[in-house]
Design a protein around this nucleic acid. Sequence first.
DNA 1: CTGAAAGCGCTAACAC
DNA 2: GTGTTAGCGCTTTCAG
Lengths: 336, 336
Amino acid sequence: MTSPSAPRPSKPATILDVAAAAGVSRQTVTRAMNSMPGIKPATRERILGLAKDLGYTPSRFAKGLVQGARTSVGLAIPDLTNPYFPAFASSVVELATQRGWYVVMDDYGHGRGSGLEAVRNLSPHVDAVIGYLGGDAGPAQALLGRRPLIVLDQPAGTAAGCISFDYAHAAKLALDHLASAGRRHIAYLDVRQAGEVPTVRGAAFAGLFGSAGTELTCFSADESAECARRAVRNLLARNPQTDGIVVFNDLMAAGALKALTDMGRSAPADCAVIGMDGIPLGELLTPELTTLALDLRDVGRAAVDLLEQLMGGIVPDGAPAPELVLRHRLVLRQSA
Amino acid sequence: MTSPSAPRPSKPATILDVAAAAGVSRQTVTRAMNSMPGIKPATRERILGLAKDLGYTPSRFAKGLVQGARTSVGLAIPDLTNPYFPAFASSVVELATQRGWYVVMDDYGHGRGSGLEAVRNLSPHVDAVIGYLGGDAGPAQALLGRRPLIVLDQPAGTAAGCISFDYAHAAKLALDHLASAGRRHIAYLDVRQAGEVPTVRGAAFAGLFGSAGTELTCFSADESAECARRAVRNLLARNPQTDGIVVFNDLMAAGALKALTDMGRSAPADCAVIGMDGIPLGELLTPELTTLALDLRDVGRAAVDLLEQLMGGIVPDGAPAPELVLRHRLVLRQSA
DNA sequence: CTGAAAGCGCTAACAC
DNA sequence: GTGTTAGCGCTTTCAG
């Protein structure tokens, strides 16, 4: 409990208020607050008590100004509701914390946000940004000036750094597996983007069109389990011979699995399903989801490590933006 | 592209560097950077260009010091890997952003963290904290001094504010539903805590022991789907007559569903399962999970609104910590 | 052991 | 239009 009659100051207490109350100089208060040597224990205790009573909290701005503060990393993410992103965020937060950094988070995907807007929001508060921006890497880096931007899953453009994924490899993994299991009518469900352009992932699958003696159909849906479910139902109605589906991400793959049930088909007997991401959700589904898995801790580590190099000035200024390419592995569970 | 020969300064550029480069006073630079009136457009453009070339970014500390910065809210969360928390976080981030606040996130649950430690990490960077701390509300509030702490799902203690849940109501909802469906051997799966003490939820269920002519067994497991799965398998082996299970949260309920399958039983025919949380995951499971649902956007809103009142000084200083109690509703899907 | 001075980078208020 | 002054709250010297 603090002193009962502590007045509620309209302005928060400053170090001078505490100094005055204690009848010492502000310097002595600093020494007490920061556990610095060269102060009599009794004095320290007395000052700490007064500080508590006055509700004194050192201004983080003054402190940062004079000390050069801990670095703050902005984390821009489209949608915390897709389990992929919190898993990634969790890793970034953990690694950042280990380095004494702290993380300012913006989830820009409640419908009306863009990655660029997220960076604009974050910009005043951070020394760097890591983010799934989905485009806009150039303007976003411009907004940040010299402060590094690490973009994931998109071309680096002018961004300081970039983590990307080898989707050609992933696509081959999935398609080979399906083909070797005798699947011949394979569909790839992409996420629908403005202008109906395929995603990077979609392009990788389309690139394998016709290989391995299989027939490949691409279709798309908005990025949610429910939309995927509807899209797969439609596909199955139109193309009943479909016997294998690869899906943009695990969340949508969960919807695909539901759609199969809706249509009275079973996975993998009638139709195999392969997701992409490798989030824990997949193991909880029935059947358990076979998926192109990324180790999300690795992705977080890649981003944080890259940022650390950039901030340490390890990477020369003129060098091309460092890019790290990560690969999926195929985790076989029940659905394919 | 910035000027090719821009030197990489060891110290970041300050407003004075820009002013010197432009041959103007620092005030003019301020006016240019902040789109303030009273400056000739040509001058502004020139300064903006120079600023970009020099890689000048205004110090957030100096700015904060002089302007009284936007308020930063710490968000302390045990585990982003449990979909409940990102759903909650998402809501908090959205509402905070609407108010012009920004959110510093700490996910303290990678094994070795405590809620208190999270608050300690956050403390230097924030004006307030919202968090699932799981105990420690008192010391955490002490750490924050006058800065408000909103704790969720635990007694307010000395925390400035508190959001809690009416588990007695939730328990009654679930047990009544099971009883009216003729279930007589009901189990409640709690999360295991240090010292084997029941959680607040567990206590609420235990409180209804013997009501409605049913038999209630409480058991517990560590907080993960996998642990829940094992625990339910054990329970079923010991108590094969169990025909209804209520689970601490949806994630663990997913594990319970898996366990039923493992044991060759079906839900809801042989045994009903009711989860708790209402996260979207439940709809993706097979069978779809009946659950005691919270509207997570409401929970976030409650926390942010409460914080806003506290920060606005609406709540008088001496008043008891404001506490908001939220209720679950029973969402009937397939599993019960 | 404690205090006084200087200055971190910026903007508000007032000159000119 | 632009420059000058003062000061935000703190810590780092350096004196006592």
